[in-house]
Design a protein around this nucleic acid. Structure first.
Lengths: 129, 129
DNA sequence: GATAGTGTGTATATAAACATACACACTTTG
DNA sequence: CAAAGTGTGTATGTTTATATACACACTATC
Protein backbone atom coordinates (compact mmCIF):
# COMPACT_ATOMS: atom_id res chain seq x y z
CA UNK A 1 0.00 0.00 0.00
CA UNK A 2 1.02 3.64 -0.52
CA UNK A 3 1.05 5.94 2.50
CA UNK A 4 0.98 9.70 1.74
CA UNK A 5 4.12 10.70 3.61
CA UNK A 6 5.36 14.23 3.18
CA UNK A 7 9.12 14.01 3.57
CA UNK A 8 11.74 16.58 2.68
CA UNK A 9 15.52 16.13 2.67
CA UNK A 10 15.83 19.90 2.84
CA UNK A 11 13.99 19.91 6.15
CA UNK A 12 16.39 20.45 9.07
CA UNK A 13 14.83 17.55 10.93
CA UNK A 14 16.42 14.08 10.46
CA UNK A 15 14.65 11.81 7.96
CA UNK A 16 13.94 9.03 10.41
CA UNK A 17 12.27 11.55 12.67
CA UNK A 18 10.03 12.97 9.96
CA UNK A 19 8.96 9.48 8.90
CA UNK A 20 8.38 8.31 12.44
CA UNK A 21 6.31 11.32 13.41
CA UNK A 22 4.08 11.07 10.35
CA UNK A 23 3.64 7.33 10.60
CA UNK A 24 2.62 7.76 14.19
CA UNK A 25 0.07 10.36 13.18
CA UNK A 26 -1.41 8.05 10.54
CA UNK A 27 -1.76 5.31 13.11
CA UNK A 28 -3.16 7.35 15.95
CA UNK A 29 -5.67 9.04 13.71
CA UNK A 30 -7.05 5.72 12.54
CA UNK A 31 -5.94 6.25 8.95
CA UNK A 32 -3.94 3.06 9.49
CA UNK A 33 -6.18 0.99 11.75
CA UNK A 34 -5.02 -1.86 14.03
CA UNK A 35 -3.95 -4.97 12.10
CA UNK A 36 -3.17 -2.99 8.96
CA UNK A 37 -0.09 -4.34 7.22
CA UNK A 38 2.56 -1.71 6.53
CA UNK A 39 4.86 -1.73 3.51
CA UNK A 40 7.95 -3.89 3.94
CA UNK A 41 11.18 -2.23 4.99
CA UNK A 42 12.53 -2.51 1.46
CA UNK A 43 9.36 -1.21 -0.16
CA UNK A 44 9.04 1.84 2.05
CA UNK A 45 12.75 2.60 1.75
CA UNK A 46 12.29 2.56 -1.99
CA UNK A 47 9.15 4.70 -1.89
CA UNK A 48 10.81 7.31 0.31
CA UNK A 49 14.19 6.98 -1.42
CA UNK A 50 16.22 6.26 1.67
CA UNK A 51 18.08 3.32 3.13
CA UNK A 52 16.50 0.26 4.72
CA UNK A 53 18.29 1.05 7.98
CA UNK A 54 16.44 4.36 8.25
CA UNK A 55 13.04 2.70 7.90
CA UNK A 56 14.11 -0.07 10.21
CA UNK A 57 14.89 2.53 12.85
CA UNK A 58 11.38 3.93 12.51
CA UNK A 59 9.66 0.54 12.64
CA UNK A 60 11.81 -0.57 15.59
CA UNK A 61 11.12 2.62 17.52
CA UNK A 62 7.38 2.44 16.96
CA UNK A 63 7.40 -1.24 17.88
CA UNK A 64 9.11 -0.30 21.12
CA UNK A 65 6.38 2.24 21.72
CA UNK A 66 3.73 -0.43 21.18
CA UNK A 67 2.24 1.02 18.00
CA UNK A 68 3.61 -1.64 15.63
CA UNK A 69 4.12 -5.36 15.70
CA UNK A 70 6.69 -7.05 13.45
CA UNK A 71 7.16 -10.71 12.64
CA UNK A 72 10.05 -12.15 10.65
CA UNK A 73 8.92 -13.50 7.31
CA UNK A 74 5.44 -12.00 7.61
CA UNK A 75 5.92 -8.26 7.87
CA UNK A 76 5.02 -5.32 10.07
CA UNK A 77 1.49 -4.51 11.23
CA UNK A 78 -0.23 -1.86 13.23
CA UNK A 79 -0.45 -3.45 16.65
CA UNK A 80 -3.84 -5.25 16.84
CA UNK A 81 -4.00 -4.50 20.55
CA UNK A 82 -3.32 -0.84 20.12
CA UNK A 83 -5.17 1.49 22.40
CA UNK A 84 -4.43 5.20 22.29
CA UNK A 85 -6.01 8.26 23.68
CA UNK A 86 -6.60 9.60 20.21
CA UNK A 87 -8.12 12.93 21.12
CA UNK A 88 -5.52 13.71 23.76
CA UNK A 89 -2.61 12.83 21.52
CA UNK A 90 -4.06 14.78 18.61
CA UNK A 91 -4.75 17.84 20.72
CA UNK A 92 -1.31 17.85 22.36
CA UNK A 93 0.51 17.34 19.08
CA UNK A 94 -1.29 20.13 17.25
CA UNK A 95 -1.22 22.48 20.20
CA UNK A 96 2.56 22.10 20.48
CA UNK A 97 3.03 22.66 16.76
CA UNK A 98 0.83 25.77 16.81
CA UNK A 99 2.59 27.04 19.92
CA UNK A 100 5.85 27.02 18.00
CA UNK A 101 4.40 28.74 14.94
CA UNK A 102 2.79 31.48 17.00
CA UNK A 103 6.03 32.01 18.92
CA UNK A 104 7.54 32.49 15.47
CA UNK A 105 4.87 35.07 14.58
CA UNK A 106 5.60 36.99 17.75
CA UNK A 107 9.32 36.94 17.06
CA UNK A 108 8.55 38.42 13.67
CA UNK A 109 6.28 41.09 15.08
CA UNK A 110 3.23 39.79 13.30
CA UNK A 111 -0.05 41.04 14.76
CA UNK A 112 -2.78 38.78 16.04
CA UNK A 113 -5.04 39.77 13.16
CA UNK A 114 -2.35 39.12 10.56
CA UNK A 115 -1.64 35.75 12.12
CA UNK A 116 -5.30 34.81 11.95
CA UNK A 117 -5.58 36.03 8.40
CA UNK A 118 -2.73 33.87 7.15
CA UNK A 119 -4.02 30.92 9.14
CA UNK A 120 -7.49 31.15 7.61
CA UNK A 121 -6.01 31.56 4.17
CA UNK A 122 -3.89 28.44 4.50
CA UNK A 123 -6.73 26.54 6.14
CA UNK A 124 -9.12 27.38 3.30
CA UNK A 125 -6.56 26.29 0.78
CA UNK A 126 -6.18 22.89 2.43
CA UNK A 127 -9.83 22.16 3.17
CA UNK A 128 -11.81 23.85 0.45
CA UNK A 129 -10.45 22.01 -2.54
CA UNK B 1 22.35 42.24 25.30
CA UNK B 2 19.97 39.34 25.88
CA UNK B 3 18.00 37.94 22.96
CA UNK B 4 14.90 35.86 23.81
CA UNK B 5 15.83 32.69 21.94
CA UNK B 6 13.65 29.67 22.45
CA UNK B 7 15.94 26.70 21.99
CA UNK B 8 15.32 23.08 22.88
CA UNK B 9 17.87 20.27 22.84
CA UNK B 10 14.98 17.82 22.72
CA UNK B 11 13.81 19.31 19.45
CA UNK B 12 14.69 17.05 16.50
CA UNK B 13 16.13 20.03 14.65
CA UNK B 14 19.88 20.68 15.01
CA UNK B 15 20.78 23.44 17.46
CA UNK B 16 22.62 25.62 14.96
CA UNK B 17 19.52 25.56 12.77
CA UNK B 18 17.14 26.57 15.55
CA UNK B 19 19.42 29.43 16.54
CA UNK B 20 19.96 30.57 12.98
CA UNK B 21 16.27 30.56 12.13
CA UNK B 22 15.28 32.53 15.20
CA UNK B 23 18.10 35.04 14.87
CA UNK B 24 17.07 35.62 11.29
CA UNK B 25 13.50 36.23 12.40
CA UNK B 26 14.61 38.76 15.03
CA UNK B 27 16.61 40.61 12.40
CA UNK B 28 14.04 40.58 9.64
CA UNK B 29 11.28 41.68 11.98
CA UNK B 30 13.26 44.70 13.05
CA UNK B 31 13.57 43.53 16.64
CA UNK B 32 17.31 43.67 15.98
CA UNK B 33 17.66 46.69 13.70
CA UNK B 34 20.59 47.34 11.31
CA UNK B 35 23.83 48.26 13.14
CA UNK B 36 22.75 46.46 16.33
CA UNK B 37 25.65 44.72 17.99
CA UNK B 38 25.05 41.07 18.72
CA UNK B 39 26.44 39.19 21.71
CA UNK B 40 29.97 37.91 21.16
CA UNK B 41 30.43 34.29 20.13
CA UNK B 42 31.54 33.36 23.61
CA UNK B 43 28.70 35.23 25.31
CA UNK B 44 25.95 33.74 23.19
CA UNK B 45 27.47 30.27 23.45
CA UNK B 46 27.34 30.70 27.19
CA UNK B 47 23.79 32.06 27.19
CA UNK B 48 22.53 29.19 25.05
CA UNK B 49 24.77 26.61 26.74
CA UNK B 50 26.42 25.34 23.58
CA UNK B 51 29.86 25.53 22.02
CA UNK B 52 31.41 28.56 20.36
CA UNK B 53 31.70 26.59 17.12
CA UNK B 54 27.94 26.24 16.95
CA UNK B 55 27.36 29.98 17.32
CA UNK B 56 30.18 30.67 14.90
CA UNK B 57 28.43 28.55 12.33
CA UNK B 58 25.26 30.60 12.75
CA UNK B 59 27.04 33.95 12.56
CA UNK B 60 29.11 32.80 9.56
CA UNK B 61 26.03 31.55 7.72
CA UNK B 62 24.07 34.73 8.32
CA UNK B 63 27.06 36.79 7.29
CA UNK B 64 27.18 34.83 4.07
CA UNK B 65 23.52 35.63 3.60
CA UNK B 66 24.20 39.31 4.10
CA UNK B 67 22.28 39.76 7.33
CA UNK B 68 25.32 40.14 9.61
CA UNK B 69 28.64 41.86 9.42
CA UNK B 70 31.58 40.69 11.55
CA UNK B 71 34.87 42.41 12.26
CA UNK B 72 37.75 40.85 14.16
CA UNK B 73 38.31 42.59 17.46
CA UNK B 74 35.09 44.58 17.26
CA UNK B 75 32.27 42.04 17.12
CA UNK B 76 29.29 41.12 15.03
CA UNK B 77 26.57 43.54 13.95
CA UNK B 78 23.34 43.42 12.05
CA UNK B 79 24.42 44.51 8.60
CA UNK B 80 23.96 48.30 8.39
CA UNK B 81 23.16 48.04 4.71
CA UNK B 82 20.58 45.37 5.21
CA UNK B 83 17.54 45.60 3.04
CA UNK B 84 14.90 42.89 3.25
CA UNK B 85 11.44 42.46 1.98
CA UNK B 86 10.13 42.15 5.47
CA UNK B 87 6.52 41.51 4.67
CA UNK B 88 7.26 38.97 1.98
CA UNK B 89 9.72 37.06 4.14
CA UNK B 90 7.37 37.11 7.10
CA UNK B 91 4.41 35.93 5.08
CA UNK B 92 6.35 33.13 3.36
CA UNK B 93 7.89 31.90 6.59
CA UNK B 94 4.61 31.75 8.49
CA UNK B 95 2.68 30.37 5.58
CA UNK B 96 5.14 27.50 5.24
CA UNK B 97 5.03 26.76 8.94
CA UNK B 98 1.24 26.76 8.97
CA UNK B 99 1.14 24.63 5.83
CA UNK B 100 3.08 21.97 7.70
CA UNK B 101 0.90 22.12 10.80
CA UNK B 102 -2.29 21.89 8.79
CA UNK B 103 -0.89 18.95 6.84
CA UNK B 104 -0.36 17.39 10.23
CA UNK B 105 -3.98 18.09 11.20
CA UNK B 106 -5.18 16.41 8.03
CA UNK B 107 -2.99 13.38 8.64
CA UNK B 108 -4.57 13.12 12.07
CA UNK B 109 -8.10 13.47 10.72
CA UNK B 110 -8.76 16.69 12.57
CA UNK B 111 -11.70 18.64 11.17
CA UNK B 112 -11.48 22.19 9.90
CA UNK B 113 -13.51 23.44 12.87
CA UNK B 114 -11.38 21.59 15.41
CA UNK B 115 -8.25 22.96 13.80
CA UNK B 116 -9.61 26.50 14.03
CA UNK B 117 -10.68 26.00 17.61
CA UNK B 118 -7.23 24.89 18.78
CA UNK B 119 -5.60 27.66 16.78
CA UNK B 120 -7.75 30.35 18.38
CA UNK B 121 -7.18 28.87 21.80
CA UNK B 122 -3.42 28.94 21.40
CA UNK B 123 -3.53 32.38 19.78
CA UNK B 124 -5.55 33.80 22.67
CA UNK B 125 -3.12 32.32 25.13
CA UNK B 126 -0.15 34.02 23.45
CA UNK B 127 -1.68 37.42 22.75
CA UNK B 128 -4.17 38.01 25.54
CA UNK B 129 -1.88 37.93 28.50
C1' DG C 1 51.16 49.65 27.69
C1' DA C 2 48.88 45.61 29.80
C1' DT C 3 44.76 43.28 30.09
C1' DA C 4 40.41 41.83 28.57
C1' DG C 5 37.47 40.99 24.98
C1' DT C 6 36.54 40.42 19.97
C1' DG C 7 36.50 37.38 15.65
C1' DT C 8 39.45 33.98 12.80
C1' DG C 9 42.13 29.78 11.89
C1' DT C 10 42.95 25.17 13.05
C1' DA C 11 42.98 20.63 15.26
C1' DT C 12 41.17 16.51 17.55
C1' DA C 13 37.45 13.88 19.10
C1' DT C 14 32.71 12.04 19.88
C1' DA C 15 28.00 11.19 18.75
C1' DA C 16 24.31 10.96 15.56
C1' DA C 17 22.37 10.18 11.03
C1' DC C 18 22.57 7.61 7.14
C1' DA C 19 24.25 4.66 3.26
C1' DT C 20 25.64 0.18 1.42
C1' DA C 21 26.36 -4.58 1.88
C1' DC C 22 26.07 -9.32 3.33
C1' DA C 23 24.04 -13.23 5.57
C1' DC C 24 20.49 -15.68 8.02
C1' DA C 25 15.90 -17.31 9.52
C1' DC C 26 11.18 -17.32 8.49
C1' DT C 27 6.97 -16.97 5.45
C1' DT C 28 4.48 -16.74 1.16
C1' DT C 29 3.76 -17.64 -3.62
C1' DG C 30 3.74 -20.13 -7.95
C1' DC D 1 9.98 -27.44 -3.69
C1' DA D 2 12.34 -23.28 -5.45
C1' DA D 3 12.11 -18.56 -5.69
C1' DA D 4 10.72 -14.36 -3.91
C1' DG D 5 9.72 -11.65 -0.18
C1' DT D 6 9.74 -10.74 4.88
C1' DG D 7 12.26 -9.11 9.23
C1' DT D 8 16.77 -9.64 11.99
C1' DG D 9 21.73 -9.43 12.85
C1' DT D 10 25.97 -7.39 11.76
C1' DA D 11 29.68 -4.78 9.58
C1' DT D 12 32.02 -0.90 7.35
C1' DG D 13 32.12 3.66 5.89
C1' DT D 14 30.79 8.63 5.09
C1' DT D 15 28.74 12.86 6.44
C1' DT D 16 26.90 16.04 9.69
C1' DA D 17 26.55 18.19 14.19
C1' DT D 18 28.87 19.45 18.09
C1' DA D 19 32.33 19.70 21.82
C1' DT D 20 36.84 21.13 23.52
C1' DA D 21 41.14 23.26 22.96
C1' DC D 22 44.81 26.22 21.36
C1' DA D 23 46.78 30.11 19.04
C1' DC D 24 46.67 34.41 16.56
C1' DA D 25 45.32 39.09 15.04
C1' DC D 26 42.61 42.97 16.08
C1' DT D 27 40.07 46.33 19.19
C1' DA D 28 38.66 48.49 23.47
C1' DT D 29 39.40 49.71 28.18
C1' DC D 30 41.90 51.19 32.19
Amino acid sequence: MHIPFKISVDHPEPLYHQIKTQLKEFIVSGYLPPDTQLPSLRKLAKQLECSVITIRRVYDDLEQEGLLSSKQGKGTFVNPELTVEREEYTYDTIKTALDNVIAQCIRMNLSKDETSRIFNEVLAHHFDH
